[in-house]
Design a protein around this nucleic acid. Structure first.
Lengths: 204, 204
DNA sequence: TTAAAGTGACCGATCGGTCGGTTTTGAGGT
DNA sequence: ACCTCAAAACCGACCGATCGGTCACTTTAA
């Protein structure tokens, strides 16, 4: 017979397994509709083990959100840092949206869940707002650079950043209503293109 | 003594009271976190009465959504119908967003709840998608009119409509993270202004 | 041998929904 | 004007299921 002995996993391994399982569950069914029992089953552990590693169901959710938002922020910052052609870099945001929507379906549901809880729980809201504002700052600086180099008209760069992020999150929300479509990246790109067109200087 | 006799209400009156109570509860706490007992208390009726008028908690939610979306669609259609100056009419969408966010806080939470359920429940999703597409059609036609009269460049009007609705829903989502601010209408207006600028013909 | 990691039966609370029964209403009979 | 009675509207105790969380205990690692 093959050895069926159960080996204990390391602290980090189990925590990661729980986070992964919770991410999948929350994305599929939503936070409230997911039971801790399901998370346990998916992670291959017992309830006791789950509560050995986490204080509560909420704590799992919050840590999960932290990780996802930090990931996203890193990607955004890298995009902005490497930007040489500003309008082209803004356009490339559409690839990121496409990736967020399609490649890893897990994330989509999570972001909705964050928004849902943020709109009601002050702690979650403040944390989300802080992160979102950092996203905004990244694009504000990028647009400012576009203005400085003469590509964009001298408008308020923060307004442009807000419009850009609105299009990003709006397209993302829209995609949740129509998961069949696979060309959301293209739609985002065309929308952003119009916006960029509106940002550009009229005369050269 | 004043007469404390309880009078039965008409079918419609009680239904409306339940819908109103449910709207307030769902907006404040979310669908899953709201108990039918709370809805009953708020509506001033018993559980028995609630289940006499509605089949289930879900049924209340669905009827509520129908009403709100129909309301919104009517306003949008009226705006489009009365439009003489197209860009100005599009800008006026910002007032609608402002109103949706601020004046009746009840609605904000509901829309999030719709999106939340739509992303998981097929029935809710298909209904929401159909409505959203009608919204899109309204603006597609409006932009087409702008192209025909020479105000806008000859781009795909549907792309413009999608971008516009993205900004609308994106600003709406953003406002949920920052309920303190009261100038979301202005922010929406400035964002739309940039977009319109991108839609306009370059040369006259 | 001891601390870390993990188990699963169990608990109290809550929730959506039911059901047997009561009160109110209004149309129609006298 | 009064009575009758069935249907409409409503009540609230109760039920079964589920859920987040606990705990006394076992297994593994070092």
């Amino acid at each position: 017979m093959s050895s069926t002995k159960t080996r204990f996993r390391s602290q980090d391994t189990t925590r990661a397994a729980i986070i992964d399982a919770a991410a999948a569950c929350f994305a599929e069914k939503g936070y409230a509709e997911t039971g801790v029992a399901e998370i346990c089953a998916r992670a291959g552990i017992s309830k006791g083990a789950l509560y050995y590693h986490f204080e509560s169901k909420q704590a799992i959710f919050l840590e999960l959100v932290d990780i996802q938002l930090a990931d996203l922020e890193e990607v955004l910052e890298k995009t902005a840092r490497d930007a040489t052609n500003i309008p082209e870099s803004l356009l490339r945001l559409s690839h990121l949206i496409q990736g967020l929507i399609q490649s890893d379906y897990t994330r989509a549901g999570i972001f909705l869940e964050v928004w849902s809880q943020a709109s009601r729980d002050q702690t979650v809201r403040e944390a989300s707002l802080a992160t979102f504002q950092r996203f905004e700052d990244i694009f504000t600086r990028l647009i400012q650079r576009g203005i400085d180099e003469g590509t964009f008209a001298p408008i308020d760069p923060n307004v442009g950043a807000q419009a850009l992020l609105s299009i990003a999150s709006g397209t993302f929300m829209r995609s949740l209503l129509d998961p069949q479509r696979t060309d959301w990246g293209k739609i985002a790109e065309e929308s952003i293109e119009i916006l960029i067109n509106g940002l550009k200087r009229r005369s050269v």
